[in-house]
Each structure stands twice: as C-alpha cells, then as structure tokens.
Nucleic acid binder design. Structure first.
Lengths: 101, 101
DNA sequence: ATCCAGTATAATGTTTTCGTGATAATACGA
DNA sequence: TCGTATTATCACGAAAACATTATACTGGAT
C-alpha cells in the first residue's frame, strides 16, 4: 500500500507526464526530451532520474549522449485507464452537484 | 495532462489508499472508516472530503451519520493495474542494478 | 432547551516537492 | 590539451501536502 502510493506519486506531476508522453514515440536523449517538452534541462534531468529510479524508464548511455526509453509500455495502458476513470469521476462530480442544486 | 496528474495525486497517499481499501466492501460511515483504518477522525474526514471532490467517492448523509461509498468500482481495476505495473517496474530496477554490478 | 454522538473545519507546524540558476562531470573533436 | 556539447548535481527559495489539536456544526434523544 505504501509502495503503491509511491508508484502513483510518480505519475502525479504534470511535467513528469509530459516527459513520459515525449517518450511514447520511443527512445530519446535528454536534449530531445527538453525540446519536446519545453522544460528546462535541469528539470528534465531530474524527472528522468526519478522515472529511472522508479523503474518506469530505462537509461542507456551512448557516447556522450544518454538515451531514455519507457521500460514497459504497459504504463501507457495505466495512463489510459486512469484517463477513463477520470471521466467517470467527472460524472460523479456532476451528480454531486445536482444533489446540491 | 494537468487534470490527469491531479487524478493520480488522489491515489498517491498511503492513508488515502487505506480509506479506499476500507470502502471496498461497500458503504461505510465516517467512524466505521476511522475504526477500519486506525486513522484519526479529522484525518479521515479530510481524506473523504478530498475523495469526494475528486469524484471517486460519493457522500450520502443519513440522519446524523454520513455514509461514503466508492462511486465507480472501476477505480479498483485501476489500483490493480497499477499494482501490476509496479511489479514490472521492480523488474526494471533489478536489470538496472545488473548493468551496474 | 440541553446534552451527546458524529462529522466537518480552522489554525498551526512540519515535512516534501518543485523549479531555477549555477556549477560539476564526462566524452568527444580540434 | 583545450574547448565544447551533453548530462547530472547542488544549493536555494517558494509552494504544496500532511497530520494534529482544538473547536464548530448538526441531528437526535432526553
């Protein structure tokens, strides 16, 4: 439960999701992610490190570049399901409103 | 993306997951949740409020009691899938270790 | 009207988390 | 070897999240 919460925390940050989204297409080095997201280099580096430690992303140095790629693309299914549940929750928010108005 | 991150944040807290877990069995009032989780009353109230605002949980006052229940049990599928991906990520953490040792 | 149980909120202090700017570390080419 | 490009880390300040204690609010019973 503790660990699960930690895992969810990984995806609870917009910029981190943006980095993941950039990596959806495949393997990218840091500057490519920087350009794709528009975030600062330091920030991207931090998020990538966190994602790596979390085991979501894989780090592969190649010469002076460092490529990152999503380890298990199943995470995108998780993101998709979350998106779907998010829709369902919006429904609830509406019905909650109705019971007030 | 912004909204999705917010949604993930809902599940990124151990105590909140504990509250959700308590509500897996069905509808419970606040004190029942307090007893099931061992958390303080104020804390449970806060988490329930957050879950309600997030649209994950539904609030139903009955006399002086207030019952809460999970709105769309699909969230449990989300939790299960996350758990599964968590396992996959552990795999990556191991292989990451191997490339170091 | 009062008291009590159940629930919600407010105020507060502590800890995390985020982002930035500057700097280090590394690999490569001239 | 020196300079440059790429990536990682450090130090810091600001903002957000959490838990706790105390207090308010509500409905029902006496």
């Amino acid at each position: 439960m503790e660990a699960l919460a930690e895992y969810f925390k990984v995806f609870s940050e917009p910029n981190r999701l943006a980095v993941l989204e950039a990596l959806r297409q495949g393997s990218l080095n840091v500057t490519a992610v920087v350009e794709a997201t528009g975030l600062s280099q330091a920030l991207v580096s931090k998020h990538l490190k966190l994602l790596t430690i979390a085991g979501v992303v894989r780090r592969r140095p190649e010469g002076s570049l460092v490529y990152y790629q999503v380890f298990d693309r199943g995470v995108f299914r998780l993101l998709a399901l979350a998106e779907k549940q998010l829709q369902a929750s919006r429904q609830q928010q509406l019905t909650a409103l109705q019971s007030v108005l």
